[in-house]
Design a protein around this nucleic acid. Structure first.
Lengths: 153, 153
DNA sequence: GGCCATTAAATCGCGCACTATATAAGTTAC
DNA sequence: GTAACTTATATAGTGCGCGATTTAATGGCC
């Protein structure tokens, strides 16, 4: 609480920051990350690691770049992350025989099994977000549309 | 481009990731960051640094924690960031006389002047986002509502 | 005064996210 | 077949963002 002497300015300029979509996006994403950090603690995963696991649960045996396309992340981010997942024995990484440049990432048994522990997560997040399912869908679609606009530049 | 052999799976599971609001939020925020990185390059600022500058342009002479409240960031993030702004000679940092625990952050002339260079930025972002102003406002309000829900836990 | 709890910043360590660059495997052109 | 180009991953360095701890100043409370 900043107690005094900055209330009379809140109508003019202070709102300038709060009026910005970009800041709302930034700050909301941080709040969402914090929620996930709490929920993912028991799985010993970070949110980006959880995203990679979700990708692999949907389709196993993907190359690094294929995971990268799905998440809009590149090898500089993914390689160390995947190494951490590997040392947690959730995935394996091996060069493909057909093309030795590529690295195929596959789930271990532990990695596959973790999916069951993660099943309750979406419901918990939805509860915490406090929006109706339709509101969440609408928001999601608007965000995806915005992202598409931002990416076409 | 992943060319073949994973198109027939896109209806079932692949959409699970894309169906999630959280991922949309995450990915859109990354895209927005990329846009800002490009636009802020000429100002030699990162997006979080730009946020701090906006806060100070709105109200100068704030303590670290007061900036932190406005941006939902703590001293572990802000102290090094502010030191970078200081060494770029955009802000000054000095302990307040009344309470030596506090550090007051103030704009230098250079820091104030930078505001003029930043004036064109919001319009450029708005153009890139490709949404109407009313759409952006609606989206912003929904995000703020979501953030508020996420924070009350 | 002296002790204790509280508060404000700073520090440490880790994990992204990204730019730029490197390495190495594959492909093309000649 | 080899030089030139392209592609897939990895590495190096920077800057957040945060949990956990530390340091130092302040405010009671006796």
């Amino acid at each position: 609480m900043t107690d005094h002497n900055d209330n009379f300015e809140q109508d003019g300029d202070l709102l300038a920051l709060e009026s910005q979509l970009c800041f709302a996006l930034y700050a909301t994403q941080l709040s969402m990350s914090k929620l996930y950090r709490r929920l993912l603690k028991q799985l010993e995963l970070t949110y980006p690691q959880y995203l990679v696991m979700q990708v692999l649960w949907q389709k196993d045996h993907l190359t690094v770049s294929s995971i990268g396309e799905r998440l809009s992340l590149d090898s500089a981010t993914l390689t160390p992350l995947l190494k951490r997942l590997e040392s947690a024995e959730l995935v394996r990484r091996q060069r493909t025989r057909e093309d030795e440049r590529q690295v195929e990432v596959s789930l271990t048994d532990r990695g596959s099994a973790l999916r069951e522990k993660a099943r309750t997560l979406p419901a918990e997040v939805e509860r915490a977000s406090g929006c109706s399912t339709s509101e969440m869908k609408a928001l999601r679609d608007q965000l995806n549309a915005l992202k598409q606009n931002l990416d076409r530049i």
